[in-house]
Design a protein around this nucleic acid. Structure first.
Lengths: 93, 93
DNA sequence: AAACTTAATCGTAATATTGCAATAAATAAA
DNA sequence: TTTATTTATTGCAATATTACGATTAAGTTT
């Protein structure tokens, strides 16, 4: 087993669980808090801010993006991340 | 690894992550929603409500209790579960 | 006491998550 | 075009989660 039986629950329940799960790690909470504070930043800024290696931060960013909590836009050779207000407000506000 | 580096984050970040993680599974979302709807119930009621076996439900209840989201009181040979308003309001309201 | 009810725990298998070194990919600057 | 810069991906090891059958524990009823 080990696999969640998502098909037995409603879409709403699964979506809420997905969003909550994305926030269910202190590093991702810290990333979201930082993004709220600075409004937008690149991955390297978060690597400097957190006690985690670059690949680990990149992976956390990917999960937050998959959950729809953040979005990234290409900015030169860097990627500018910010909160996805549409999802965030639906979840939080 | 696989173990979260909780000691590198603040207590607030860890607590929020713990609460979010507890809600990060559709079964636990469903349990909370059901508890809000019926106000209070015993484990067996939830087993009848969800497509999961009794030990699985019991385990989810334990995690919700550990996170402080619900509390249980002995009621005959059953256990009456309800939302822990103190934690719930701090998290949600 | 014996039978029943209710829920927790144990044990175990399947799967997911976390973390990072090493590497790759993609753009920018020289 | 070589060299930086920046981020994503791969591969892997350690640990955590999910699920449930079997069993246990504790109270209730007969």
């Amino acid at each position: 087993m080990g696999a969640t039986k998502t098909d037995h629950f409603t879409d709403q329940q699964n979506e809420l669980a997905t969003l909550a799960k994305a926030l269910g790690h202190p590093a991702r909470v810290a990333i979201i808090e930082y993004l709220i504070k600075v409004d937008a930043c690149i991955c390297g800024d978060i690597v400097n801010e957190l006690p985690l290696a670059q690949p680990t931060v990149s992976q956390h960013l990917k999960e937050l993006k998959n959950a729809g909590l953040i979005k990234g836009s290409i900015e030169g050779n860097a990627i500018c991340y910010c909160i996805d207000d549409q999802t965030w407000n639906r979840f939080h506000g």
